[in-house]
């Protein structure tokens, strides 16, 4: 960094305070202006963070909306356990949109590569329609992906759940325009402006509990496409892949069939903060096979209604 004399920036609120204030403001705006909001909740750190912020926004009242999980059927068991325990603790209603149900009755069919991430879109849209939800909170962040970098904080979706990136409403000051008509809904991203490191520093500061697989643990894994993949029923190793035990952790928690682990001995939140600060790879680049398909993989999924 530049070698200059240190001029202290004026005392005041720090980055995490500013991001928290912005996120709580957004969550309250959506609850005030929409009839039936819902939070997409996977048990992953970003959705856990949004839920934590929502709890702060309305305390001492409880969070005034349910949570919706799009269940691919390929979940890490520890994450499902965490999801259920969290929902129970906060006294929230859990809605589940099950990809497995769609596969069982033939509305969807399994992809050749076995990954179920792209299959989530239809159950998600049906789940939103079934709950008559007019606003859907998500934990997406702009630093995750180039297409997400162009996403609005409040983002309108048409009757088909589609995102039209060329026709987005300008977003001005901190005035959010939530106008929509019947059939449309709005996706709301309160932590748009947080980076992965901000999320972890805030988790550390607030003492937020996460599923254990975010921290270093020993696991049976094999190397595929440069990522450590967990051995499971839905993600078996091929004959030419060597299974070994490694100390790993997950930077993102998604569908088991396409989420990879990283080698890490970061066993505590403090360790993770230090590790992320030094990391030379983005979290999606390091751990998501589905985003490696093309430069525009995320944009194409988002246009079709993905979160």
């Amino acid at each position: 960094m530049s070698a200059t004399e240190t001029v202290p920036v004026a005392e005041g609120i720090d980055t995490l305070d500013a991001l928290e204030a912005e996120a709580i403001h957004i969550i309250r705006e959506v609850v005030a202006e929409f009839e039936r909001p819902v939070l997409l909740f996977s048990g992953g750190k970003d959705s856990v963070l949004v839920l934590h912020l929502a709890a702060k926004a309305f305390w001492p009242a409880k969070v005034p909306f349910p949570v919706l999980h799009v269940d691919t059927g390929h979940n890490f068991p520890e994450v499902i356990e965490f999801r259920d325990r969290t929902v129970e603790r906060l006294g929230l209603r859990l809605e589940v949109a099950s990809v497995q149900d769609y596969l069982d009755d033939g509305r969807l069919s399994e992809r050749a590569d076995g990954t179920r991430n792209p299959l989530q879109t239809q159950p998600l849209l049906d789940g939103i329609a079934a709950g008559r939800h007019d606003a859907v909170f998500g934990g997406a962040r702009r630093d995750e992906d180039k297409a997400r970098a162009k996403e609005r904080i409040l983002s309108l979706r048409d009757e088909f759940g589609q995102w039209d990136p060329r026709n987005q409403r300008p977003e001005l000051w901190d005035l959010y325009n939530g106008r929509h008509t019947v059939g449309q809904h709005v996706r709301a991203f309160p932590i748009s402006n947080w980076t992965e490191l901000d999320v972890w520093r805030y988790i550390e500061r607030e003492g937020i509990e996460l599923p254990p697989l975010y921290y270093a643990h020993e696991r049976e894994v094999y190397l595929r496409d440069g990522m450590w993949r967990a051995i499971s029923d839905v993600s078996p190793a091929r004959a030419d892949e060597t299974v070994e035990r490694r100390i790993v952790r997950y930077r993102t928690v998604g569908d088991m069939s396409c989420t990879g682990a990283v080698e890490s001995d970061a066993a505590s939140v403090g360790d993770v903060v230090r590790e992320i600060a030094l990391s030379t790879l983005t979290e999606r680049g390091a751990t998501r096979a589905d985003d490696r398909i093309s430069e525009a993989a995320m944009e194409d999924r988002k246009k079709d209604g993905y979160f």
């Binding site: 180039k146 297409a147 997400r148 162009k150 990136p165 060329r166 430069e295 525009a296």
Partner: peptide, 9 residues
Amino acid sequence: LTDGLRAER
């Protein structure tokens, strides 16, 4: 790095 959309690239 900043042109995130397919049409932009």
